[in-house]
Each structure stands twice: as structure tokens, then as C-alpha cells.
Amino acid sequence: MREAFRQGLRDLGYVEGRNVVIEYRDAEGKHERLPALAAELVALKVDVIVAPPTPAALAAKQVTKTIPIVFAAVSDPVSSGLVTSLARPGGNVTGLSDLTPELVGKCLEQLKQAVPGVSRAAVLWQPGAFGERTEKDLLKAAEVAARALGVRLQFVEARGPDDFDRAFSKMTSARADALTVLPTAMFVSERRRLVDLAAKNRLPTVFPYRESVDAGGLMSYGPNLADMYRRAATYVDKILKGAKPGDLPVEQPTKFELVINAKTAKALSLTIPQSVLLRADQVIQ
């Protein structure tokens, strides 16, 4: 991902060591190190801080109100407290969100194309995972997309991993024939259990992150994160040329990637149409 950002800079004419220097700081997975690392960058008087995920951006925001900060993979920048609005972030922070309300609909569309017989899809969601408005937008967009696809939706809640068994029982008793999982953190960290439960209940499932497909899920459709890191360089460029971060709207993903696990398809006795396989960015054999 760091390389994608550097490539983005190169595309804009920056040459490391000639007209730009990048000071890297890596918390090595330890959240508590982030504030000190962000403070180091402030002490170095860098021109801009790139802090891709939420905790890094929050840590940077806490140590400077003046140095511009660019994030690259924040799900809900408004409810995280990074910006006041997507259109006009205000303050010294802006960047790219990895979430868009259309994502759920796009996932359903991919699922329907991969498994055309789907007519009742369960939507696994976690109440409270996002800000209220974001959550409402996500669920509404799912309904709209499902209607257009002729798929009936069943919304099933899981507040934590302890709710998974009950959630899958609800899906099977309502005769759901597929599942889409919303892009929340808990579902990512619990992907192995979700993948196992989907297999056990023979539910073709579309996930929003490819890691779930690497773990054995049937398919994923989600933002191309390398592209977002590349685009973060565009923000840096504009800021270095004088733009104020607070005036630069938060952008959402524009490129998405489709990953399919052929082994899982076979285990579910599914034949994924050739047209879908050809379109996939990766097919795991």
C-alpha cells in the first residue's frame, strides 16, 4: 500500500530525494505508539502527514491542528470525528473513505450474477458499527438495489460474535439462499467463523473484503485499496500546491475488485458463469 502511494506521487512528478522526502513511521500494530510517532512527524515540521487508517489519522489530528493530514482508508470519517462533513471537511484533515453506500448494492449485484438463482438474500449487519446516518444510507441502498435485482432481503443483526449462531439460524429458517455481509470491522476480524458458518449452512456469500475470500469465502467485492492509496497522493499534491485540506472534499472509492474462490464454489456445487469468472480480478483455485 505504501508503494501504491509512492507510485501515485511519482505519477504526479515527485521524485524522492530530489523534490520530496518521505518520513515513514510504523507503529507495528501497536496503537499506543501512534501518538508518539505522529508527534515525531510534527516535530520534524513535515509539510503534510499521510495517516491512512482511522487510528493513525486520529493520532495525527490530536497532535496538530495546523499541519495538513490526509487519510486513505477510513470507513466513516464523520462519525470517527476526523471531519465535519464529507463535502467540506473543515479543519486540517481530509482524505479518502473506503466506504460508499452503493457498495452493498454492488455486492448484491455481483452475487446475483455469480449465482443467478438467488431470490432471498440475507444481509448480515452490525447495529451501531457506523454513525446513524451512514447505517441508514447503507441499509436503504441495499433495499433499492435488491428491488432492482428482484431479490428479497432479510436483514439479520449481529452485535458480536456470540450472535452468529442465532443469526445463521434465522437465515436458514427464513430460507435465505444467499448472504451478503456488510463491511464492518467485527465481520472482518471474525471472517473465519463467518466463512465456516456460511459453508456449514451452504449459503453462497459475498463479502466486502478479499481477506474473507482468502479465508475460504465464496466471493468478495470491495474497494481497490491500492487505488485509494494512489489517490491519497493527489491530495498531497494539491495541499503542497497550496490547497487547504478543509476545502478538499472526502472522496469515496471509484475502483472495485471482484475476487472469487473457485474451490468454495465447487464445495457449494455452484457453477459460476464464465462471464463472471472472466471479469474477476482474481479467481482463487
Binding site: V20, G29, L44, P53, A60, V188, S189
Partner: peptide, 30 residues
């Protein structure tokens, strides 16, 4: 010469698990 600071939670990890950690951290900071 312009200087860009780049701070990550974990360069060696895939991003999705990071997103998970990110949200936990965001909640902890609230």
C-alpha cells in the same frame, strides 16, 4: 524539498484487519 510524513498502524499487515483495529481504536479514543 517538501517533506511528507507517513504514519501507519502496521505496514506489514493487510489492510482489512487494520480496518478492524482502526475502528476499535476509534471507539477507544471516543
Amino acid at each position: 524539498m517538501r517533506v511528507i510524513g507517513f504514519v501507519v498502524l502496521a505496514a506489514s499487515l493487510a489492510l482489512a484487519p487494520l480496518a478492524a483495529e482502526a475502528q476499535q481504536a476509534a471507539k477507544a479514543l471516543e
